[in-house]
Computed example of a mutant assay.
Amino acid sequence: MTADHESTAAGGEPELSDSLRTFGAVLKALREAAGLTQEDFAPRVRYSPAYIAKIEQGKRFPPENLPERAAEALGAVAGKVLGAAARSLRRRAGLASWFQQWAGIEEEAITLYAYECRGVPGLLQTEGYIRAVFDRRLPPLAEDAFEQQVAARLARQDLLPGRPNTSFSFLIEQAVLERRLGGTQVTSTLIDNLLTQGGRRNVEVLVMPLRQPDHSGIDGQMYLAETPSHTWFGYVEGHDSSTLLTDPKVVSAMLQRYGKMRSQALSHEASAGLLKQMLGAL
Rank of each mutant, 00 (worst) to 15 (best):
D4L: 10
G11W: 14
S19G: 06
S19H: 09
S19L: 05
T22A: 14
T22R: 02
A33C: 08
Q38D: 00
P43M: 00
P43V: 06
S48D: 03
A50C: 04
A53C: 02
A53S: 04
K54C: 01
K54S: 00
K59P: 04
P62D: 08
E72D: 14
A76M: 12
A76H: 15
A76G: 08
G79M: 10
V81C: 05
A84H: 12
A84Y: 08
R87W: 00
L89M: 05
R90I: 10
R91M: 01
G94V: 08
I105M: 09
E108Q: 05
A109L: 07
I110T: 10
Y113E: 05
Y115A: 14
E116P: 06
E116L: 06
P121E: 01
P121V: 00
L124Y: 04
G128V: 05
G128Y: 03
Y129Q: 15
A132H: 13
A132Q: 13
R136G: 14
L138G: 09
A142D: 12
E147F: 05
Q148G: 07
Q149C: 07
V150Y: 13
A151N: 01
L154D: 03
Q157P: 12
D158S: 03
G162D: 09
L171S: 04
L171A: 11
A175R: 06
L177E: 08
R180T: 10
V186D: 05
T187V: 07
T187K: 10
I191K: 03
D192A: 14
N193D: 12
R201T: 12
E204D: 13
V205Y: 10
D214P: 01
G220P: 01
Y223W: 07
Y223D: 06
E226W: 04
S229E: 13
F233C: 03
V236L: 10
D240K: 00
S241T: 11
T243H: 03
D247M: 13
P248S: 10
V251P: 09
R257C: 06
M261A: 15
L266W: 00
S267Y: 02
H268L: 07
S271K: 04
K276R: 15
Q277R: 08
M278C: 11
G280N: 10
L282W: 08
